[in-house]
Design a protein around this nucleic acid. Structure first.
Length: 836
RNA sequence: GCGAAAGUGGCGGAACUGGUAUACGCGCUGGACUUAGGAUCCAGUGGCUUCGGCCGUAGGGGUUCGAGUCCCCUCUUUCGCACCA
């Protein structure tokens, strides 16, 4: 019989895969049939969440990759019998809208809504399985009403508060920023401008009240990337130590400090206060010193974070003329102001132990402050005068009154317990995490629903008055105060409490507030009575997999939304502690030589262009196949060729084999049904089903595709002597490919006569009666080097295999004149002869 | 400086608990069918080779019958942290 292969003769009679019409056909049908509409109360839920998007009007390769990964998972879970929630929405407040408005003389709202239309159309062309009925846009009143509700709930629970503080100010954006929005080099996350400090009264969310839970629960998130977990741990910066109350010698006022090394307390030879610390103003500074100190404080405050951090070997400060008393030794030491001390951490004051802390050491060296050794290394001695640097390791306490001889952790415990027992301190935990500054002096954001009353102070807007509508303004240009402040109709209101005249807060919220709860809104996006019904949220949450750029959000969004989750649980709206079980970072898309795509580099490739010439499914496959999905991908046109061949090949095979086979359902084959070659191929098919299923579970889309290609190569070798076998195999492959090539698979599925969507079909199970090959290849090694392979029936006696191996010619040759010391036999794998 | 992850053909990348390194794809070489081929199909493709083999997973050591995989050192890259007391 002729080898039929999958060649179609004459090939010219069959056109290539007509992707354009097939794509629009199925996109339309999915829409009409509401195939991806999620129920409110699923019985077998799976929640796939992709980070919602800023509506910039187009999509780039990074978005494309993000969404096709989510889409593959959503469609696969659907075929596995889950009800899938796969929603989408728009993070629609934010700076670019104002800039566009200024530049193009458009209202930010019009610009944004127009972009949403365009972006949505684009996503529909990609055929992403979003449930568009649940779409949200954070800039619409029916959404931001509930963002305001969140603010008020936090306010009512004492977790939203106003304080004057030294805050981050970006002079380019003309607004304040949260700590999370300033990078490690002191630059604005959005414009990269230098961030300075400004003393302002602003709204904060008390995320620090959740520091311990946020820290502790990181351990309950094994499905998150370790790097993200580490970044959050670092950001929260939990540190266990001891509070020790020194006193200001002149006034007797308490001067508490935090230290992780209370065992060095007898080595304190000075104290240092941060220049910004409130404590400074309470010091009895001698007249003669005041001018010098004021100048120093002025100088340090005007330095940027970067300047203060750079050259960290250079410590400077100024002596206040005041003294502090060590409660352990009763000794008086000099009290300095030094800008290596941070006002925002601990009490803003540190005890200076030059012998055992490198920073204190450098500082003391510079100013000739004495040094006292109070810790000796185990079994060693330190000479203070010979120290070239601080000895910061653990050791044995010396020169420490009754504590001498205590060592390491015991020493720390002993001193801490003593402090607690004598009312001069005790165990304390400190966090690096600061409260979240949420006010923004910008127009295009969610209005803060607070009214400032001269009598009642800040008062929350009444819930039934929500939303506080964002008014139109003439001028969006940020001037360093909110444009809303210039709209008297907006700001002049009555106090909800006393009815007196009052002023509305003119600021808007950080857009990260909007994105801290959108995943909950999706479970009940049309609710006009509540942000979402708790029972609906309960039915879907937590998110099973959350996909996006986890790196840039590691210590921002991904911390904020955990905070909101815990808060909403505390007030009874949620039952979960953590919002998402698994977090997937889709890697960046780079150009073919590994440079990030950017306008300035001129190497941007639009997914839309590729889709237009090759079709969506080919473009999807090329992206999936190029690299495992957590890794960065080098995008190259060359990569398309191979997967395009796969698409064309599938389509051609379907054209040929669907002709007269109809929907006839063959669920499995028995060995007796088919010839040997077909059975082998059938086994290979089942192995492929198994492998693809396992790889999808591991989100290894690249190896799924490879497995399918491999099988297709094998299928091409098989003749058509068993009627309908090819048709059977192709239908299985169509299902396996469906999460990755949804349009192609739908079309082929229909060609085979199925009336329902392939996504309503049941994901193939492998036939466990046909998963193992009849014969296996055994590697034959001599001294660990491969010398031959032999093929034996599965389950052959290992000794028999070894004997066969010994007899074959290439092995004989190597064994000639040598002594076999040992035979290593790994059943089903290899035989290794150890010879001399 | 500290910490973590990684380094595999010309390229993107495979390889389960140590067990046939380089699956799959691109590219390349040759061929078939063709008016044509940027279509399709077939064969080959790590390096060296005296055609027996030898060498090969960043480099060097080690453990083992056997190492891409485990251990130690070095180099490189990426990422995070970097006055947090």
């Amino acid at each position: 019989m002729d080898k039929q292969k999958d060649k179609v003769a004459p090939s010219r009679s069959i056109g290539s895969y007509p992707f354009a019409e097939i794509e629009s056909k199925w996109q339309k049908r999915w829409d009409e049939q509401k195939l991806f509409r999620a129920p409110d109360f699923p019985t077998n839920p799976y929640y796939v969440l992709v980070m919602f998007a800023y509506p910039s009007g187009d999509i780039h390769m990074g978005h494309f990759r993000n969404y096709i990964v989510g889409d593959a998972i959503a469609r696969w879970k659907m075929m596995q019998g889950h009800q899938v929630l796969h929603p989408f929405g728009w993070d629609a407040f934010g700076l670019p809208a104002e800039q566009a408005a200024i530049k193009r003389k458009l209202h930010p709202r019009d610009w944004t809504l127009n972009n949403i239309e365009m972006s949505r159309d684009t996503l529909k062309k990609v055929g992403i399985s979003f449930d568009w009925d649940r779409e949200v846009a954070s800039c619409l009143p029916d959404y931001y009403k509930w963002t305001q509700w969140m603010f008020i709930k936090l306010f009512e629970n004492g977790l939203a508060y106003r304080k004057e503080a030294s805050v981050n100010w970006c002079s380019t954006c003309n607004t304040v920023l949260a700590n999370e929005q300033v990078d490690s080099e002191g630059r604005c996350w959005r414009c990269e401008g230098t961030v300075t400090k400004k003393k302002l009264e602003q709204w904060f969310f008390k995320i620090t009240a959740y520091a311990e839970r946020l820290y502790r629960d990181i351990d309950t998130l094994p499905g998150w990337l370790e790097s993200v977990r580490m970044m959050q741990r670092n950001w929260i910066g939990r540190s266990e130590g001891c509070r020790i109350d020194f006193t200001i010698a002149e006034t007797g006022e308490r001067l508490p400090i935090f230290t992780t090394r209370p065992d060095t307390v007898f080595g304190v030879t000075f104290m240092a206060i941060a220049p910004e610390s409130d404590t400074v103003s309470r010091l009895p500074i001698p007249e003669s010193k005041k001018a010098e100190i004021a100048a120093y404080i002025q100088r340090s405050i005007s330095k940027s974070e970067l300047e203060r951090t750079m050259g960290s070997d250079e410590k400077d400060g100024v002596f206040t003329g005041c003294y502090a008393t060590n409660p352990f030794s009763g000794e008086k030491v000099q009290l300095w102001i030094a800008d290596y001390v941070l006002a925002s951490y601990g009490s803003g004051t540190v005890m200076g132990v030059p012998a055992h802390d490198q920073r204190d050491f450098l500082f003391a060296k510079k100013y000739g402050i004495p040094l006292r050794v109070v810790i000796h290394p185990q079994g060693g001695q330190l000479q203070g005068s010979e120290l070239q640097q601080a000895y910061a390791d653990f050791g044995v306490m010396v020169n420490s009154a009754g504590f001498d001889g205590k060592a390491g952790e015991d020493a720390i415990t002993a001193v801490t317990d003593y402090a607690a027992a004598h009312g001069i301190g005790g165990r304390e935990i400190n966090y690096r995490l600061r409260d979240w500054l949420v006010s923004r002096q910008r127009y295009w954001g969610c209005p803060i629903p607070i009214i400032h009353c001269p009598h009642c102070g800040p008062v929350a807007e009444r819930i039934d008055n929500l939303p506080v509508m964002l008014p139109d303004v003439k001028d969006y240009i940020p001037k360093g105060r909110s444009p809303l402040a210039d709209v008297p109709e907006y700001t002049n209101v009555r106090c909800p409490k006393c009815g007196g005249s009052a002023e509305r807060d003119p600021d808007t919220m950080d857009t990260f507030v909007c994105s801290s709860w959108y995943l909950f809104r999706y479970t009940d996006s049309k609710n006009s009575e509540q942000p979402f019904a708790p029972e609906k949220a309960k039915a879907w949450l937590p998110v099973d997999i959350y996909i996006g750029g986890t790196h840039e959000h590691a210590t921002g969004h991904l911390l904020y939304y955990r905070f909101f989750t815990k808060f909403l649980k505390d007030i009874g709206y949620l039952t979960i502690d953590e919002p998402a079980v698994r977090l997937l970072n889709h890697g960046m898309v780079l150009d073919a030589i590994g440079t990030p795509m950017s306008k300035s580099a001129g190497n941007v490739v639009s997914p839309l262009d590729v889709m237009a010439s090759k079709g969506v499914d080919t473009t999807r496959l090329a992206m999936h196949f190029a690299a495992p999905c957590g890794k960065e991908v080098l995008w190259s046109e060359d990569g398309i060729v191979g997967v395009d061949r796969l698409v064309q090949r599938m389509y051609r095979l379907a054209l040929v084999h669907s002709r007269d086979h109809g929907t006839r359902e063959q669920t499995s084959y028995k060995r007796s049904d088919v010839n040997e070659e077909t059975w082998k191929t059938y086994v290979r098919l089942n192995q492929t089903v198994k492998k693809v299923t396992e790889d999808l579970d591991k989100l290894q889309f690249n190896t799924c595709i490879a497995a399918i290609m491999e099988f297709l190569n094998d299928l091409g070798e098989l003749d058509g002597s068993v009627p309908r076998f090819h048709a059977f195999a192709i239908q299985k492959l169509t299902q396996l490919l469906a999460p990755l090539t949804p349009h192609l698979s739908e079309e082929i599925w229909e060609m085979f006569g199925h009336a329902e969507s392939v996504f309503k079909s049941h994901w193939p199970d492998h036939d466990s009666e046909a998963i193992e090959d009849d014969s296996i290849t055994i590697a034959i090694q001599i001294n660990g080097k491969l010398r031959a392979t032999i093929t034996v029936p599965r389950g052959s006696q290992p000794q028999l295999v070894a004997a066969t191996a010994r007899a074959i010619e290439p092995v004989q040759k190597h064994l000639q004149g040598r002594e076999i010391l040992k035979e290593i036999i790994v059943p089903g794998k290899l035989v290794n002869f150890v010879v001399r």
